[in-house]
Amino acid sequence: MINFTTEQLNRYSRHILLQDVGVEGQVKLCRARVLVVGAGGLGSPAALYLAAAGVGTIGIVDNDQVDISNLQRQIVHGTKDIGRSKVESAAEAMRAINPDVEVRPLATMLCADNIMEIIKDYDFVLDGCDNFPTKFLVNDACVMAGIPFSHGGILRFDGQTMTVIPGESACYRCVFRQPPPPDSVPTCSQAGVLGAIAGMLGTIQTAEALKYITGSGRLLTDTLLSFDARNMDFRKVSLRRQEDCPVCGAHPTITELTDAEQTVCALK
C-alpha cells in the first residue's frame, strides 16, 4: 500500500472522495503505466489529465516538432515551444502539473520494428495518432500483446472512439478491416478540425483509461461512440468481436506486424 503524504491526499482528494475511486483507486492510478501515442490534438488533453490524475508512469511518443498551426488545438504546447520536440514540450507541461508522475518522452515514430518493445511496459495505450497505418499498427500490436487501448479519431466537427480489451471485446479491425485507400479519407491537416473537438474526444479517451485502471463504470467496449458537434449529436453503435477478424478472430491471418505501404517510419 502506498502511504500518501498530506500533500498527495489534498492533491487527489476529489478522486478519493469518489465512491468508485477512493484511496484504493488512487493507489491504482499512482501505480499505473499509460502510453499516449501522439502528442497532438488528442494526446494533449490526455497527457495533461493523466498527469493531473497522478498516473504513475506516462509514456508519450511522437517524432514531430511543435508548429504554430498545432497551437489551435494541441493545448499541451505553447507559443514558446514552437520548433521544440513535441514530446519534450509535453513532458515539461506534464511535470509542471504534477511532479509526482514519471514522464517518459519518446521522440520516435512507432513502427512495426519498435512498437512491441515500447508498448510492453504499459498497462493501457491511448491512441491519438494522426494516420491510419499507425492506428492499425497500434490495434494489431495491442491485440497481439494483450494490452487494452483506446482508439480515437477526429475530423472537422466529428469524433469517434472505442475501447478495446484484447480477447474480450471487438478490436478496431473487427470494424475496419484495413486502412482506407490513401487520400480517400481526408486528414485534419487537409479538411480541418474544430480545436475543441480534440479536447472533447481526448478527454473521453482519458476518462476511459482512468476507468479501466480504477475498474469503475462500464467501458466503451464493443461500442463505437461517435459524435457530431455541429448539433451535439452523440451516438453509440454496438459492435461485437468478429469470428473472421484478421487479427483477433478464430483464425488470424495477421500474425506479425508490418508497416503499411505509406511506410509509417518514413512519414515525416
Partner: peptide, 9 residues
C-alpha cells in the same frame, strides 16, 4: 461507421 483518422497533426 466512418473512418476517422485525425488526432495528432
Amino acid at each position: 461507421l466512418y473512418f476517422m483518422g485525425g488526432g495528432s497533426r
